[in-house]
């Protein structure tokens, strides 16, 4: 039984990492560091390329002193593309992906690797592909549904040259650990969402309005999908939310499979005011309107 504290292979927050880079050198440095650490621990390493030629991955490793070729031959290193694997159906489905991770970890274990390490290039997430809009939902869900359950370490590679900074920031914020993040020159005033460490749930930060409806939709989808009994939505870092955001959350609370109320923490004044106008939105929520 996994206890949700992330004890499987170390703290889950440290094993699901957003890695940002904007030069080939930065990319190579992250790659080498990650693969080398995996080989040192006797783990299987898989690289899912999107923008990068898979041959460049092995060449770069070899050029920086990692014996990639023999690792490939013995099955410890697998370099492939997202298109050939989890995007083969030309659509992205978070539920299917979560199932794939379970099987991938089982396969690695079958080959004698107790821990699986994965790099995934995420640049496909901003392409027009069916389901790509669910990438944020996926990044949010896998903290609890994958990393707290499985001996898996994953670095999600975000190339700043290929993604708009606002889209990238929102996706990277969904990871509890970020590497290579560019300093933000100012508070961009938007909305971000991240999983809670140590207990099922999520935290919304910033200001939720029409402009951030996709972030709220992703958070709501992740809330609705969670099968945990007690799920918390921490709103203590939220300055404002509008009725559309509140309605999305209320819908998600009603859809939860467990049937238990969604626990709200730190609801901002706007939520309590909307509860006065629309008390029915409080069904399925605990801690609202107080």
């Amino acid at each position: 039984m996994r206890d949700g504290s992330g004890s499987v292979g170390g703290d889950a927050a440290d094993r699901h990492v957003a890695v940002e880079y904007s030069t080939d050198d930065e990319w190579a440095a992250h790659l080498v560091r990650f693969v080398r650490a995996g080989f040192d621990k006797g783990e299987q390493v898989q690289y899912f390329a999107d923008a990068t030629d898979p041959r460049l991955v092995t060449r770069t490793l070899a050029g920086r002193g990692v014996d990639a070729d023999s690792a490939v031959r013995r099955g410890q290193l697998v370099v492939t593309t997202a298109d050939e694997t989890y995007l083969t159906g030309s659509r992205f489905d978070p539920d299917a992906m979560i199932g794939l991770w379970r099987r991938a970890v089982e396969n690695a274990a079958g080959q004698g690797y107790g821990n699986l390490r994965v790099i995934g290039e995420m640049s496909w997430g901003t392409r027009h592909m069916t389901g790509a809009e669910r990438l944020l939902e996926y990044e949010l869900r896998i903290h609890h549904e994958v990393f707290e359950q499985l001996p898996l370490t994953a670095w999600c590679f975000y190339d700043r040259r290929l993604m708009a900074s606002e889209a990238l920031d929102v996706l990277a914020d969904a990871h509890l650990t970020r590497k290579g993040a560019a300093p933000r020159s100012h508070d961009r005033g938007g909305l971000s969402v991240a999983p809670l460490a140590g207990r099922p749930g999520f935290r919304l930060s910033g200001s939720a309005g029409y402009e951030s409806r996709r972030v709220v939709a992703a958070a709501s989808a992740a809330l609705a999908a969670s099968t945990a009994e007690d799920v918390t939505l921490d709103l203590s870092c939220l300055d404002h939310l509008d009725v559309a955001a509140f309605t999305d959350i209320a819908h998600a609370a009603r859809r939860r499979a467990s049937g238990t109320p969604l626990r709200l923490v730190g609801a901002p004044p706007a939520l309590n005011r909307m509860m006065e106008l629309f008390p029915e939105l409080g069904a399925g929520l605990q801690g609202a309107g107080q």
Binding site: G209, H240, D242, V243, A244, P269, A270, R273, M274
Partner: peptide, 18 residues
């Protein structure tokens, strides 16, 4: 009244965009 103000401005400006 601050919350009323923010919610009202939010709805009006959001309607313009939508």
């Amino acid at each position: 009244r601050h919350t009323d103000w923010l919610l009202a401005v939010n709805e009006a400006t959001g309607n313009s965009v939508r």
